[in-house]
Amino acid sequence: MKKHTFLVVAALLAAEAANFGAGIPEAHADRRQNSLANDVAVRHRRLLVRGRFELAPLFESTINADFRHIIGGGAKLEYHLGDMLSFGVVGVFGTALNTGLVKKIEPTLEDAADPATREPSRDEFMTRLNSMPIHGAGYVSITPWYGKLAAFSQAYLAFDFYFQAGVAYAQLKSDCPASVCNDPSPGMSSGPDGMTPPDNNPNNDDPLNSGSRLGLYIGGGIHVFMNDFIALDLTIRDYAFTDNPSGADFNANLAVTKDDARFMHHLFFGMGVSIMFPTTVKRTP
């Protein structure tokens, strides 16, 4: 009798113990892991860009240009579809400044061209350099990172990083007068019946580095928000298109032709002040 009682009790306890062990994960799941595990990274976040237009007057300057720095002013207009996706356009009017390299070369050149050498005269060298009066881009922008920072433990500012890609446009300009660029048929025979051979002098050829260019655009930058609707906007932009900045013979065929242009990167640093519209922000739950 006692033996049977013990066996029945032991079986009941074993069964209950098995149920007890199996029930732990469900019964105590809420004690080991709270709702933060599946929550967003930031709650009560100010939606500083979502659903807002961004208008940014800006200043741009080339970085490490070879022959002419381009500096100028313009604006960026962008609409943010969400926290991470936006599209926009940027346009800049610029002026050109000679780089240190040009300032070193120019004084060493002769005033007049010497037909006995292939050395350009001062005018031949300077007037063939091109400038970029207008440039811009249309782009799609991704903002994968946002956050806040403390500066000197005093100023607490929101910021975000963004990356852009799109289509670049540039208007190039060079001013080689007819008195300098006077070769009517660079690299080719000319004259009646083509009897005049090429002059093999690229310094008097048309530089072929003016006009409109389409290319690729990529950029990356940071917004640092001063308040709910004004942000400092710092950007590195690369406008890549075919160009021949010196307007000279690049491929050493003794003539300036379209083949001398190559796909080049034009790096710019931009700084602007972004104004967000509407000026009020919403918060996430």
Partner: peptide, 19 residues
């Protein structure tokens, strides 16, 4: 090091950084 902060990557993960 005057500046430190944190940012969210794709709204999923927080990363701390400083300047």
């Amino acid at each position: 090091v005057p500046v430190y902060g944190k940012f969210a990557v794709l709204d999923k993960r927080l990363i701390t950084w400083e300047v």
